[in-house]
Amino acid sequence: MSKVTIKELNLFYGKFQALHNINLPILKNEITAFIGPSGCGKSTLIKSLNRMNDLVEGCTISGEVKMDDENIYAKECNINLLRKRVGMVFQQPNPFPMSIYDNIAYGPRTHGIKNKQIVDELVEKSLRKAAIWEEVKDDLKKNALSLSGGQQQRICIARALAVDPEVLLMDEPTSALDPISTAKIEELVIGLKKDYTLVIVTHNMQQASRISDKTAFFLNGKIIEYDETRKIFTNPKKQETEDYISGRFG
């Protein structure tokens, strides 16, 4: 079942067209990977799913992005509520310069949860889901910036999960991390599939093939091919896809 459906999406940064007529389903409880060479529009598309592009001056969008049959670009759509439903993890871990606890509690508090006990529970639950509870449970008051990069990224995942999103967007979440931290996060992401719908941008072909169910291959702002990950990597239909995954360009 399709959780998010992108229809005829065109996106411009000023006069420059960064996305051309994108049509793509994002299936529920699956991991969809976006791959493609640098500058082909992967980040741009992932950011249009939670309307982070609205923050970019001069960015205009036409077409539709439907989430459960609701057009997120409709006038009546509440952006803050949308972003609560569609969480995001960034390339560089970006915890707030405050305690681990406050980092996780920030989202729930933003959405009006004030009760200490409920917040406590949410913090623990989110940290557990992000597989970092055991490492930090004894010093939740510690500043999140004192953690290692890999731990910080898992804090950021926990922070995104704390507002109870339905979709989680991850833009190259492991590209700044060492292999061990990367492996931890990959394992964790696979585990999240049963509760969430995930989209992950990655430059790492092995990563895409290890963890994703569907893969979309981008080139110059267009989706060249979209299919089961297995098919994309073993039997791609398009020449460009094959060239890219076999490392001939990009």
Partner: peptide
């Protein structure tokens, strides 16, 4: 990136 993180949580 801090502002972005905050916006992405719906703040």
């Amino acid at each position: 990136s801090l502002r972005q993180a905050s916006f992405s949580l719906g703040a």
